[in-house]
């Protein structure tokens, strides 16, 4: 029976795929947990791979605004440069998470490691601000926070943008 043969072959190919997927994911340094944290309420979503515990999360735009008004923090935009140019928090510095390696040296020379840094991206569904915050902590910055509602949350409140 032709269909039975095809079904068996499909099952064979699918089994190889599933076995390789779980085996490689288990041993790979970039492997992820089988179940992630995809609930937006406590903060940014994550595949459960990232260490979020060291990062201070700002959950309310009003608190981010208070920090902004105090002038004590540098806001860092972790989205792509094109998206940054389309609109960003007024005075924010662009550092796309994917281009960290190329930009960190100049950033490090300009801002000492005791600078208070607030990273943000496109809201709770994006992970770039957490990634960048973790990289900045690893670099040696001691006060790094993430504004989890990001640019959309800031804009909707009518806070200064450019």
């Amino acid at each position: 029976m032709q269909w039975r043969k095809i079904l068996k072959q499909m099952l064979f190919l699918f089994s190889i795929a599933v076995i390789s997927a779980f085996t490689i994911n288990f041993f790979s340094p970039t492997g992820i947990a089988l179940v992630g944290r995809w609930d937006e309420t406590p903060g940014g979503v994550t595949t459960n791979n990232d260490t979020l515990t060291d990062v201070y999360e700002i959950e309310h735009p009003e608190i981010a605004k208070q920090i902004y008004d105090s002038g004590k923090a540098v806001f860092v935009d972790s989205r792509s440069y094109d998206t940054y140019q389309d609109g960003h928090i007024k005075g924010a510095v662009s550092m796309p998470a994917g281009q960290y390696d190329g930009l960190i040296q100049a950033f490090g020379e300009k801002y000492p490691t005791d600078t208070f840094i607030i990273a943000y991206c496109s809201g709770r569904t994006c992970n770039d601000s957490h990634k960048l915050a973790q990289l900045l902590l690893n670099y040696g910055y001691m006060n790094v926070g993430v504004f989890i509602d990001g640019y959309p949350g800031w804009k909707v409140e009518g806070y200064p943008i450019e």
Binding site: A17, S20, A21, F22, L34, V35, G36, T47
Partner: peptide, 18 residues
Amino acid sequence: TFSINLIAIILPYVELIS
């Protein structure tokens, strides 16, 4: 939500093997 990581783990290998 429980299926997101599983899809991300399995789907690429189904694409690769096929």
